[in-house]
Design a protein around this nucleic acid. Sequence first.
DNA 1: ATAAAAGTGATAATGATTATTATTATTGTT
DNA 2: AACAATAATAATAATCATTATCACTTTTAT
Lengths: 128, 128
Amino acid sequence: MKYSKQRELILKTLQEHMIHPTADYIYEVLKKELPSISLATVYRNLNQLAENGMIKKIEGLNGSVHFDHNLSKHYHFICTKCNKVYDVPYDVAPDLANKVLSKTGLIIESYDISFKGVCLECHKKEFH
Amino acid sequence: MKYSKQRELILKTLQEHMIHPTADYIYEVLKKELPSISLATVYRNLNQLAENGMIKKIEGLNGSVHFDHNLSKHYHFICTKCNKVYDVPYDVAPDLANKVLSKTGLIIESYDISFKGVCLECHKKEFH
DNA sequence: ATAAAAGTGATAATGATTATTATTATTGTT
DNA sequence: AACAATAATAATAATCATTATCACTTTTAT
């Protein structure tokens, strides 16, 4: 994988946004810093970074695809009002791969939990 | 919700296939029984049944959408070779909504766990 | 039997993602 | 520093699953 300024900026943008952005969101942010960047470049690099294990692809609402730069074990909370994705600590459900193995015999390669609800921010907004 | 033969057949087909089929899969199966059925009708009814809480929408690999007629609490295992979806019993991780509430304060409306790996059937095939 | 409401089939439209391609940037080697 | 080679880019066309549209049909209650 050869260096490129675009990829560096894409990764930096992903790291700076806590909400687990989509490709399009990153594109909209980066356009201000590098107006010549192409949406295809954002998609290409995010997929490449994910294939190389440097970031993770996560599923949002309605089949939307979000990205996560945090490689440590954790889960996700998706707000059904604003679609933002937040982290949920791993210890709410530790060691699930082994539990599934012992209960079903299935060998788990990976898994994710996506919790859904209304985030604190959106919850506040409901009362003005 | 008014009765329709199409909807009845769609639900029946979903119930008869353990693999948690996609809209397109159900369409391909039903075409044999009711050749005049339209793919749009399959999509329309599956979404409607899901909105009315009679079935559930679940996320497969690569953003594909599958459906589940089983409303009881359970999780899913998605085979990364054949894309079939299997059930995983609830007791591998019970009471997660409360655990998340007590650890984070977030109120969970729903959640799903999708485990990924190679299913037994595909695992066997690897050795002919 | 009838009229309102909901459903259907066919197909066009949508929208997110991917493929294509001519051009440009990076890298290791002389 | 100049040189291939190789990978990456920008722009845009293509793809594909899903949804919207609409003229027509079926269901349902009266």
